[in-house]
Design a protein around this nucleic acid. Sequence first.
DNA 1: GCGCTCTATTATGTCCGACAAAATTGGCGG
DNA 2: CCGCCAATTTTGTCGGACATAATAGAGCGC
Lengths: 237, 237
Amino acid sequence: MEFMEPRKRAPAHRALARELGIAILTGRYPPGALLPGELDLADSLAVSRSVVREALRTLAAKGLIESRPKTGTRVRNRADWNLLDPDLLAWMFEGEPPAGFVDSLFQLRMIVEPAAAELAARARTTRHIARMGHALEVMEEEGLSSVDGQAADQQFHNLILEATGNDLLISLSGSIGAAVRATTLFKHRKAKQLRDSLPLHRDLFAAIIDGDPAAARAATITLILQAQEDTESSLKA
Amino acid sequence: MEFMEPRKRAPAHRALARELGIAILTGRYPPGALLPGELDLADSLAVSRSVVREALRTLAAKGLIESRPKTGTRVRNRADWNLLDPDLLAWMFEGEPPAGFVDSLFQLRMIVEPAAAELAARARTTRHIARMGHALEVMEEEGLSSVDGQAADQQFHNLILEATGNDLLISLSGSIGAAVRATTLFKHRKAKQLRDSLPLHRDLFAAIIDGDPAAARAATITLILQAQEDTESSLKA
DNA sequence: GCGCTCTATTATGTCCGACAAAATTGGCGG
DNA sequence: CCGCCAATTTTGTCGGACATAATAGAGCGC
């Protein structure tokens, strides 16, 4: 159990799930492949079979694998993977994100977030407006490079989805948030000059306050486009 | 282990995960609540602690719960639940779907599917067209009430998402498909007269063949609206 | 030889009992 | 009164054993 050094807090079964999950996502075990038996895994990794089994249950719950007696444990088809699971998205970005995946993510954001902003502009309550205003304040004071500033940025976007009152969209916010968090790492790691997105955030906030769906949609699109351009220029570097 | 009678094929840990998952989703264990200790659960349900633990790992992987030593296992906040997980959606519809949830689902479909149809009309290959044509044929021959016809319907919609070439959208198709399958049950169970959706499917198919994004979007919107009206009239009855 | 059934094998599935580690709680001492 | 330390409780990990299911192969009859 030597592979959990970075996070001593992480239980062995969680560390192993991450390990195997990444191995599957990166294609070391391609779809249809049979992975080693539980007992083999257990003693090749120096953990008990319980740990292996719990890790496999975690991966099975995320749609990555499928276990049957005698047959063994098999990697499921890519279409069955729950790619919107926050853990999977996080694991996906641990190394270099697969080509095209970043595009897929921005395509999805471009579909979901403008529509969500529209809904939010209609359904928002004063409570939501207050909390969004607070998040915006933190962003302005702390800046978008600081940890607190980025957390406030996340919350600002989550609040928009929350304001739609749609449970499924709220759940999506967690997933997309996990992925955006990861891409933001790339942006700040590799790119030096990032355009200030605060004015665009303010425009979006104003549109939601006004209850102007069209303006909210337009502001969101602009915001995502800028993030996409910055991210792509970072990836090229 | 007497609760797995309906599906003898289902392992105990899977049956228990479903059991507990439904209990959490239906609010029997509300967010923040502490559920019984592993040992208590084990002998109150007459299974071993291993089974209980593997079930809990499954639920944890789906974002429902969170375990820590000494503190116990706690139900996480609703916002952390992976509602787009196919299992969770299926469990959600085992009983009466919560009020507003059906609306949320159609709202999500109305956001995602028209946009996906647009993309599909641009990116579709002849291979996709051929498979979609085949699915449409099955639907026409078997009818939408038959099992095969509904399966073909599912596949038709999945193929559209697949044609977008966007992995995240493809993954969404599995989730939404699970939910749509469930709502379809309601429609055919309670409603007597369902309008024929085949002509609309043909319109959508034609638009995709033509590579006409605007028409594909419009056809998809019409299709979803009709399904929504039929579903709502079924739920009232 | 061909095909069927029945057995053998091998993986996951389940059970048990024990100890380790962590985190809260309470008590002890400064 | 505060802070440190120990006691307790719960999850975490371990090891081994047996049950069960699904495949592969042996044996049998035709």
